[in-house]
Amino acid sequence: AFRGPADAERLRARLEEAGLRARVRQSGKVRLVLVSVRGSVRDADRVRGELAAMGLGRPILLEKKPVAEKTGGKGRRRSAP
């Protein structure tokens, strides 16, 4: 989290240069830099490792949605158990 927009944008750009999907969201007087991860738990663990290697500490999980899986056939999806 940053108070100034320039610092938040610098971190967002750094994350995107590292191949991560990132965006800045304002929350009150601070700007949060959010990293989006789509995939498996293993993918999320890999991103956590990348953030730690960048010296960014431990991320905070804001939202977790179940992953939909393909059922075959006509492309219908169902929620994972």
Rank of each mutant, 00 (worst) to 15 (best):
A1N: 03
A1C: 07
F2D: 02
F2Q: 00
F2G: 00
R3G: 07
G4W: 04
G4H: 08
P5T: 09
A6E: 11
A6V: 13
A6F: 04
A8L: 09
A8H: 06
E9M: 12
E9H: 10
E9G: 09
R10H: 11
L11A: 07
L11G: 01
L11Y: 10
L11Q: 06
R12F: 02
R12M: 05
R12A: 04
A13G: 09
A13W: 02
A13H: 14
R14G: 00
R14L: 09
L15K: 02
L15W: 08
E16K: 14
E17V: 02
A18G: 00
L20D: 01
L20A: 10
R21M: 00
A22W: 06
A22C: 05
R23S: 14
R23P: 00
R23Y: 04
V24M: 03
V24Y: 01
V24A: 03
Q26A: 15
S27W: 09
S27V: 09
S27H: 02
S27M: 10
G28V: 00
V30K: 07
V30Q: 04
R31Y: 15
R31D: 00
R31P: 00
L32F: 07
L32S: 02
L32E: 03
L34M: 12
S36H: 14
V37H: 04
R38H: 07
R38V: 05
R38D: 11
R38P: 01
S40P: 10
S40L: 11
S40H: 07
V41D: 03
R42P: 00
R42Q: 14
R42I: 03
D43M: 04
D43L: 08
A44K: 07
A44R: 10
A44C: 04
D45R: 11
D45S: 09
D45G: 01
R46S: 06
V47Q: 04
V47N: 07
V47K: 14
G49F: 13
G49M: 09
E50H: 05
E50R: 12
E50L: 11
L51D: 06
L51N: 04
L51F: 05
A52H: 06
A52Q: 10
M54A: 13
M54P: 01
M54N: 06
M54F: 07
G55I: 02
L56I: 09
G57N: 06
R58F: 03
R58P: 06
R58S: 08
R58T: 11
P59A: 04
P59I: 08
I60V: 15
L61T: 10
L61M: 08
L62H: 14
L62G: 07
L62S: 05
K64N: 08
K64W: 14
K64V: 14
P66T: 03
V67Q: 11
V67H: 13
A68T: 05
A68E: 10
A68M: 12
A68S: 08
E69R: 15
E69C: 04
K70S: 11
K70H: 09
T71N: 06
T71G: 09
T71I: 15
T71V: 15
G72K: 11
G72A: 05
G73M: 01
G73H: 02
K74H: 09
K74D: 11
G75F: 01
R76A: 10
R76K: 14
R77W: 08
R78L: 13
A80Y: 10
A80G: 03
